[in-house]
Design a protein around this nucleic acid. Structure first.
Length: 635
RNA sequence: GCCCACGUAGCUCAGUAGGUAGAGCACUUCCUUGGUAAGGAAGAGGUUCAUCGGUUCGAUCCCGAUCGUGGGCUCCA
């Protein structure tokens, strides 16, 4: 709460704004006093600077949505007597409110709630704020059976709490709110979901209703359109349409089956990765899928990661199916005596791991139970750690630029369940922080979000729809080298302990491909497109020439196919468009006579007829790994 | 793992107040040789509606369990 002194000559924020700028005052939803948002009805000191928060203000939507959540709570209370209200904040794209009722709410309940909300909005009830002594508020909520509010108040500091009322509904709330319910221009309830009280799975499951609100109907319509666009780009839908991959109930949840086109895409990405790693001094290695259980006990995985692992037994010997690739890499390091002159050693593996994810968390390619990481472990001296981390960060920057992603950085620190000494954690964290600072990029901190063996830098990609995805991560580990007793001979002849960095660039190939599909809406840039060129014949008189063109392109390394079916050209064009093939070559009598091809771009644009050599030269130029601006355009 | 919803032909979806199921696309055959997003005709396709069990004279439709999917929560590359 603000520490505003109510002087005798204090005016409400609304009055102050009225005096300052009547035009803005009319549109104001709240006021900003000393940088703090307050209700228009709040009294403010005469000297305090006041400005209007109008719908154009970035904070305004949050206010509106939070107020709409209150309106929804009022509607739900009116329609479902006995319901308990929990919390209802504004979120990224809207708001929600959590309830406890004799039964969970279902989508069928939403229309009635929306209708009631519309009535409340139409009646234009003012939101009014009052401060109440804690004891009084507690008694009031307890009398109504609002046990969640009671719990919230008990957790609050101070002697008084603020309450907001509109119509017949009063809620514990910090505020501020819009002046009255009539300011809600457009809203929609979107979905229902279960949610744990206070986000803890040990607590009761509440019934959550999600919705969104805007100042006018046009904005709501645009938002709903964006949801449609996201649906259109959904990699699960496109993955099926483009014949990239499939999932099968009979195979198991979260297990991807790659079809030829999807596998080709994977191959292209993996080959790109191998080359990029070789350029940067990594060695390719490969470990087995299963390793003895004792090894997982030694590494700490058995104690800290068992829930996520699959185990099997052969001839009385217990094995763990690998959920991470680090163990084999340590065995390689240990296979001979290492000198400081050998370091850093960078082991790279496209390693397929299996993790037993909880049944409710799988999601297309982005959350699966078996996936391949572009994983590497860097073993180096303590002095080399900083430079190695920076090297990885540079690697990430270069690769993301090629794929066309912007990203942000996060630092995750020691979690509750972890191994290693405090000193090691401090050293490791300090090394990451130093590298982050040296990189000059800003970063956020996630307390307690590190891996069990070390802190990490997470890289979150931002895709074309501004959604964020966790892909790359860099983890600093002093503990596993200790547990596996790794060492190297230092320049003075003494045995020293190396430091290990765990890192991935794309993360999981599966997830990354899912993100790529959505980012490009399936229209991959030429270098990634599984099928780069499709040769289309106008009549079967061009079949021989088409076969020749296809063979010639293939010989030059172009991924070309031809469509010689007895179909009209328009049908062939349509199918190639559906598969989002970057180039079509139209071959009719004219092309046959002059041994030419007429390229048609995915955008619909036609190029002049040219010979195969000229076309191949154009492709060779365009097919370098880099972002094709055209491919990012909407299809 | 938890809450809610859903699971009908390869795909997208209709349908039955419980009486043994339909369309479009795709597929096959034939006709058509047609210049830039679907030419025409015929045919085949579900062991009967995810699986198993229950209620019922009778279940795709009601109930339960299991598997899977979707939206969330928790967790995560």
């Amino acid at each position: 709460m603000g520490k505003l002194v109510v002087a005798s000559q204090s005016l409400s924020a609304a009055d102050r704004l009225q005096a300052l700028d009547p035009q803005a005052a009319r549109r104001a939803l709240a006021a900003r006093v000393d940088g703090r948002l307050v209700d228009l009805s709040r009294l403010v000191e005469p000297e305090a600077p006041v400005s209007a928060v109008t719908p154009a203000d970035p904070e305004a939507l949050k206010l509106l949505r939070h107020s709409t959540a209150h309106i929804m709570a009022e509607a739900v209370r009116a329609l479902f007597p006995g319901v308990k209200v929990a919390i209802g904040p504004a979120i990224e794209d809207g708001f929600y409110y959590d309830f406890e009722y004799t039964r969970p709410f279902t989508p069928e309940d939403l229309p009635a709630i929306e209708q009631k909300m519309a009535e409340i909005i139409k009646s234009n009830q003012p939101f009014s704020r009052r401060m109440a002594p804690k004891a009084e508020a507690l008694a009031a909520f307890a009398a109504e059976g609002e046990s969640y509010k009671v719990e919230l108040i008990e957790g609050l500091e101070g002697d008084t709490v603020s309450l907001y009322s509109q119509g017949g509904f009063t809620d514990l709330c910090r505020g501020p709110h819009i002046p009255s319910t009539g300011k809600v221009g457009a809203f929609k309830l979107l979905s229902v979901a279960g949610a744990y009280w206070r986000g803890d799975e040990k607590n009761a499951m509440l019934s959550r209703i999600y919705g969104t609100a805007f100042f006018d109907k046009k904005e709501l319509k645009e938002y709903l359109h964006l949801l449609e666009e996201a649906k259109r780009r959904d990699h699960r839908k496109l993955g099926k349409e483009l014949e990239l991959f499939s999932f099968h109930e009979e195979a198991g949840a979260g297990l991807v089956v790659w079809h030829p086109r999807g596998m080709l895409l994977r191959y292209i990405i993996e080959e790109f990765e191998r080359k990029e790693h070789m350029k940067r001094g990594y060695h390719m290695v490969q470990g087995p899928q299963i390793l003895k259980r004792e090894l997982w006990e030694r590494s700490g995985h058995f104690d800290h990661y068992r829930e996520n692992m699959y185990f099997t037994e052969v001839e009385g010997q217990a094995y763990g199916i690998k959920p991470m690739n680090c163990l084999a890499h340590m065995l390689i390091y240990k296979s001979k005596v290492r000198s400081y002159r050998d370091l850093p050693l960078r082991y790279f593996e496209l390693g397929t791991v299996h993790r037993h994810e909880k049944s409710g968390v799988m999601h297309g390619l982005t959350r699966v139970r078996a996936f391949t990481q572009d994983d590497a472990h860097i073993l180096c001296t303590p002095e080399q750690v900083g430079e190695e981390i920076l090297g990885v960060m540079k690697f990430v920057t270069e690769v993301m630029a090629i794929f066309g992603f912007d990203y942000k950085l996060e630092l995750s620190t020691r979690p509750e369940s972890s191994i290693g000494s405090d000193e090691d954690w401090e050293r490791a964290t300090a090394a990451l922080v130093a590298a982050l600072q040296k990189s000059g990029r800003s970063y956020e901190i996630n307390e307690g979000d590190g891996a069990f063996y070390g802190p990490k830098i997470d890289v979150k990609l931002r895709d074309a729809l501004k959604r964020e995805w966790q892909c790359a991560t860099i983890q600093c580990d002093f503990t596993l080298p200790e547990r596996f007793d790794l060492h190297y001979v230092a320049s003075d002849g003494s045995l020293q302990r190396p430091v290990m960095l765990h890192r991935v660039i794309l993360g999981s190939i599966e997830r990354f491909i899912g993100v790529l599909v959505e980012h490009f809406a399936g229209a991959f840039p030429l270098w990634l497109a599984p099928e780069q060129v499709r040769v289309l014949t106008v009549t079967n008189r061009a079949d021989d020439w088409a076969r020749e063109v296809e063979a010639e392109l293939k010989a030059r390394g172009v991924r070309a196919e031809s469509d010689l079916r007895n179909e009209k050209l328009s049908a062939k064009v349509r199918e190639a468009q559906v598969f989002k093939v970057p180039y079509m070559l139209i071959l009719g009598d004219r092309e046959v006579d002059e041994r030419l091809v007429t390229p048609r771009l995915r955008s619909g644009q036609n190029l002049e007829a040219m010979n195969v050599e000229a076309f191949a030269a154009r492709l060779a130029e365009e097919a370098q790994p880099r972002v094709d601006a055209q491919a990012k355009e909407k299809q």
